[in-house]
Write a protein that binds this DNA or RNA. Structure first.
Lengths: 222, 222
DNA sequence: ACCTGAACACCGTTCAAGT
DNA sequence: ACCTGAACACCGTTCAAGT
């Protein structure tokens, strides 16, 4: 895990709290009450401690979230990847997506310019290698990774937000959320866009778009 | 603008406040102090009113943001679009991106499953029409729109977050933000990913990725 | 070094009352 | 109908002190 070296076994486990106990408690809150309820104060309460005690073990909330992401990525099963480059690129990107799909709370942390977790860099490497194997220059392969990254987090952002709007994930009581979606009254031409506007986004469809994106990125290769 | 019909000229302009004055004030705060400082309370102060007064004109903060997005989209110049379908699809998607690129504050509202602003539905239609013109079925064209939408908001999310991390956009005093980026110490293989990891994401590069995505989506057409 | 209590500077939103 | 004041139920983070 990230920062292993800074806290190998020396300081950090003298007092009641440690990075590890904090992380475990955070995972508990996430599991029981959802991402919307994970706050430094809630977490302190969970540990029968004070908010400030936490700041002795993590710099701030963002670091905590990064640590959680890293732990999640590390625990995620590492599937066998195909050898054939294009298949390998697709499979790696799919794993990346699947890792993140389990973490609605990373939306707050998606800030970063790429996948930040050390525990998942093997995936980034796998994707770039596969793209090079497909005939892209190294620079184009890095760029291809970025485009796939954008597509992935775009899909996830929309997905998580929709779930949140529907009240999944144990958020607060969830007052009636009218799902502010365009109505035919506001926008008469809506019908032209085809029905089932909202029902199209499932896991399968992520794969389908992923294939299109990848093929587009590889179209000029070799 | 959205909800024009609900407040044509009847109620809503009797008291000191109206949707319009609130929107104008919000645009001011956005311009002067950035998205991070736009709160219902800040806005009430700007209008020398109370937070609750606002709730008489907008349902909640989300509606306010949607209204702002819609006004922005409406004010955005509507460029001439090329006739040729592929070029038209590319150009429409680029305009969609450019409209949103001016609104760092929409990240909070990107919840929605597609572009929600009525004032910009012409773009969605343009994209879907162009995709059909390229030989996609209507259903595939709608799906293509979604993939492009994911790519677009993914790119924007990363872009805005990077800007925020760098302290642009008039946020709070911005304490030293060490830009929690992977270091070579944490991840020795970092060099393999190529330098200029962060410098690749500019407007030009959005276009380049967009072309790849579009070509991938159109690859099986006709 | 590790933890506590109190405080700072905020949020969005609701309730009950005023005009 | 429109607006106010006070309150509810929170945030992340800092400061000064304790052991």
């Amino acid at each position: 895990m990230r920062d292993q070296k800074q806290q190998p076994a020396g300081p950090g486990r003298v007092g009641r709290l440690s990075r590890q106990t904090i992380l475990t408690a955070a995972q508990g809150v996430l599991r029981e009450e959802g991402a919307g309820n994970l706050s430094m104060r809630r977490l302190a309460k969970e540990l029968s401690s004070t908010p400030m005690a936490l700041y002795h073990h993590v710099r701030d909330k963002e670091e905590l979230l990064l640590l959680l992401l890293d732990a999640h990525a590390e625990a995620f099963p590492r599937p066998e990847l195909p050898e054939e480059p294009r298949e390998r690129l697709l499979a790696s990107a799919q794993v990346l997506h699947d890792i993140l799909a389990d973490c609605p709370w990373i939306v707050e942390v998606l800030a970063s310019d790429g996948f930040v977790s050390v525990s998942a860099m093997w995936l980034v490497e796998s994707m770039i290698d596969a793209a090079v194997g497909c005939g892209l220059t190294h620079e184009d392969a890095v760029y291809a990774y970025r485009v796939i990254w954008y597509y992935t987090i775009g899909e996830l952002t929309v997905r998580f937000n929709r779930e949140r709007a529907r009240g999944e994930g144990g958020g607060p009581p969830q007052r009636e959320r009218t799902m502010r979606v365009l109505t035919a009254e506001e926008y008469p031409q809506l019908a032209r866009l085809g029905g089932r506007w909202t029902e199209l986004a499932t896991a399968d469809n992520h794969r389908r778009g992923l294939e299109a994106v990848v093929d587009g990125l590889l179209r000029a290769a070799r």
